[in-house]
Amino acid sequence: MPLTLLPIRRKALIVSLQGGHGFQRKLRVMGIREKQAIEVVSKQPFRGPLTIAIGSCQMTLGRGMAQKILVEVS
């Protein structure tokens, strides 16, 4: 399922990334890659951005981007 549907603080694994090649690279260099454990820390209302945690690292990204990250509850 897309990351946007993952409940807050539920542990999951990244299964695959969608979108253009450049976009995928941009995610990967920030640490968002296949097989990484991921959690959603918060979701801003009105289709606002998500804040996620990967390892000891947190980042905020827009809904559209989060939609393209497919995860699986672990």
Partner: peptide, 10 residues
Amino acid sequence: SPEIFLEIPK
């Protein structure tokens, strides 16, 4: 206007 993509420091 692309979406935000920002690291949150500790």
